[in-house]
Amino acid sequence: MNIFRLSGDVCHLIAIIILFLKIWRSKSCAGISGKSQVLFALVFTTRYLDLFTSYISAYNTVMKVVYLLLAYSTVGLIFFRFRNSYDSESDSFRVEFLLVPVAGLSFLENYAFTPLEILWTFSIYLESVAILPQLFMITKTGEAESITAHYLLFLGLYRALYLANWLWRFHTEGFYDQIAVVSGVVQTIFYCDFFYLYFTRVLRGSGKMSLP
């Protein structure tokens, strides 16, 4: 554990909580991609199956359980409690275009050809593209509320901090998880355009982030 890893995890947690509270308080999930949230719930589910097979630390177990609970609660808010506010018309990204290649790749490129490892690899690849339905939705509607933008900022920060964590671990421990690092770099690249928009529009603008 190092400071980059810890702050990355905290930013991830803050992002998930921001989104949950936004939907809970406004009683609306307008502007939120339900598809991205289902993909994230799937990411956590397939990655954290090791909760049943190996114990790493109390921190590790607690964080995994919290991520899982929050992910499923958010999906529940979007598709059940506040489903009337769900904008399925704008949430039109075809997720099968992500799931099929990601599933295929996790069978081809993994650390071990075992069910748990393949599912872990699937979760890593899927996480790197899971935000695309949300970014697609913002592009389609042309704007995002500032709170949605804050959510994306913290998710992006989490990614950037994990990159720093891997650089740190490589230098101090010689540790290098190729699958996680390559997918992580790809994932972080998706946020770059968003970071630019965030800093030029949300911080200077009127609260809403509009695309050019």
Binding site: S54, M63, Y111
Partner: peptide
């Protein structure tokens, strides 16, 4: 990364 793969990161 051969056997006993330990994924400690979240």
């Amino acid at each position: 990364h051969a056997l006993n793969i330990h994924h400690d990161e979240l």
